Simulated scan of single mutants.
Amino acid sequence: MAFTVARAFKSRRALAAATAIAAVAATTVLTTQFASATETSPATAQACTLETLPIPADLFQSAKVTGMSRDGSVIAYQAEPFDYSDPATGSVHQPLLYADGEVTEVPMPGEWQEIADVNSKGVGVGFAFVNDVPRPYVWRDGALTRLLGGRGYAYGINERGDIAGESNNPNTGLPSPTVWRAGATNPTRLALPTNAIWGTATAIANDGRVIGHVTLDGDTSGDTKPYIWSADGTVKKLPMPPGVKLADADAYPMEINGDWVSGALEAPGIDAPGIRWNLKTGTVEMTDLGWYEETVAVAPDGTVVGHVWNTPTAAYQATDGTVVELPGLIDPARNLNYDNAEAISADGTLIAGWAVSGYENGREMHQAVTWTCA
Rank of each mutant, 00 (worst) to 15 (best):
D117K: 01
T234A: 04
I157W: 03
D217I: 12
A99M: 04
T52V: 13
I197H: 10
P187V: 00
E159V: 05
L174V: 06
A128V: 13
N278Y: 15
D141Q: 08
D223N: 07
A201D: 02
K225Q: 02
Y316F: 10
S11V: 14
A315Q: 04
V92N: 05
D117P: 01
I344S: 01
L30V: 06
K237C: 06
D58H: 15
S62N: 15
Y338L: 10
P107W: 00
E294I: 10
G243W: 12
E266M: 09
L329F: 09
A251Y: 00
T178S: 00
P242V: 13
P226S: 12
I256E: 14
M365D: 13
R151F: 14
W354L: 13
E166P: 03
G348Y: 02
A264L: 09
E285W: 15
N169Q: 02
A8E: 08
A315Y: 02
D248R: 15
E166D: 08
T66L: 14
T200A: 04
K236A: 10
D58K: 11
A203C: 10
K245P: 00
D132N: 12
V133Q: 11
W309N: 07
L190P: 00
V130A: 14
T224F: 01
G263P: 00
T66Y: 14
E80N: 15
N278P: 14
Y252G: 12
D271T: 08
N171K: 13
T28A: 12
G362Y: 11
T194E: 00
A8L: 10
T38G: 15
F9G: 01
L53M: 03
P54F: 11
A99T: 06
R140Q: 05
T202A: 02
W112C: 02
P268S: 11
F127D: 03
S357K: 05
P332D: 05
G183M: 06
G90N: 04
T185M: 11
L265H: 04
A22R: 10
